[in-house]
Amino acid sequence: MKPRFDNAYVLNVMAEDRPGIVAAVSRAVFDARGNIDSCSQTVLCGYFTLIMIVSFPQPPGEAEFLQALARPGGRDSGFQVVMRPFVAERPAPVAGDCDNFVVTCFGPDSPGVIHRFSALLAEKGINIVDLYGQLSGGQFVLISQVQIPRQWDLAMLQADLEHLGREQEYTVRLQHENVFIATNQLRLTRPEGAGP
């Protein structure tokens, strides 16, 4: 993605969820003559987090801009804000052709579970592009959407994940994303190697 102006930043805002957060952040960007090039938000258990790519025609006074977000009109906004320069031309997180898969894990909650599953994926250079976890009645559901380099033997990978799952008393499944697209969406399934 190429931002509208040359001086681009990644802006991350976290706050307790309430109406008006997006309005306040976008107002601050607009007041600094900036443009929002891309944005995504999520709310988890009442906590709001927002990530944006913002760009400005001239470098903004960073301290001033952050102050405008944290204390608009002298009042504490309750926002935690992080800003860092945006680099447009970044190498892909995983080199080579990948296919998109979904890993689902169901089992008893215990500290370290996410680490153990994600460490196995990381070991094999598998990138997590989306992660969801939810605790419900002592049972934990973990869903990761991942990009798997095509060099990996799928059956081996499934066996490794299932083995780890059994050790943790988890049911683990690794399935190609197309079965989820086919059953839920009107679009056509993605050809293999098409990337994210």
């Binding site: 689902t104 989306d130 869903i143 959407q145 994303e177 989820f180 697209i181 059953t183 839920n184 969406q185």
Partner: peptide
């Protein structure tokens, strides 16, 4: 990106 509820309903 797939939605969580879509994934869970297919798993079901």
């Amino acid at each position: 990106m797939l939605r969580t509820d879509e994934i869970l309903s297919t798993i079901q």
